[in-house]
Amino acid sequence: MKKAARQLLFYLFLLLVWQLLFQRKLWPPYLFPSPTMVGEALWQGFSDRTFLVGVTISMRRIALGYGFAVVLGVVLGFLIAASDFLEATVGGLVLSLQSLPSICWLPLAILWFGLSERAILFVVVMGSLLSVTINTEVGVRHVPKLYRMAGRNLGARGFGVFAHVLFPASLPHLVVGLKQGWAFAWRSLISGEMIFVSLGLGHLLMVGRDLNDMSQVIAVMIVIMALGQLVDQLIFRGVESRIRNRWGLAREV
């Protein structure tokens, strides 16, 4: 409770500073809107449903792209961890690709898929796939050999070792990868959506720019931030702490 109060105070303070800066009239209002103007833009956006449509479309895209990346990334991660050959070849490639900012895939995606839904999805997948893969692989490699031996000794074979030992044992790491992957997917999505009339949140940002409407730009930024936080807090924090508690791992500070 004390923490929440502190946070509230902090944000009120930020708003106050913002308002004071606005009143000094250092910049024209269309470049530096007041908190109330942004609040109005937020209200406007939600009441004429453009923001709702944007949120829905963006969430649908990310569900698709991120979902695909998770399935592919987890499978790929396990395969790389299972084979020394794949580790030396594909594993190395994944690591170097990971150093590419996901926005780098955009020109390639546009050339391959044109200004289309598929181009956006491609960028989302490329943005999150690699971190899911890497964390899965690390997770599997960190599974103590003892668990594998105990599992085999108790009769687990082949796919059973994977399903009943390796997969659950690597979950704490895996969730970290999923969380990181989500953050990357969210970023890639917003940048991808800026490329054409995609109707998503990224597109709404560009509309704001085209209309010279800084209030809308900031309002959309706030929506993007809030949504990213919401998913992180509601889904990933919960899952992560449940897993850490169950596994008896120390809580993250």
Binding site: Y147, M149, A150
Partner: peptide
């Protein structure tokens, strides 16, 4: 086998 570190599954 009962291993020295047991290998009980925490999950």
């Amino acid at each position: 086998m009962i291993f020295q570190e047991l290998g009980l599954f925490p999950w």
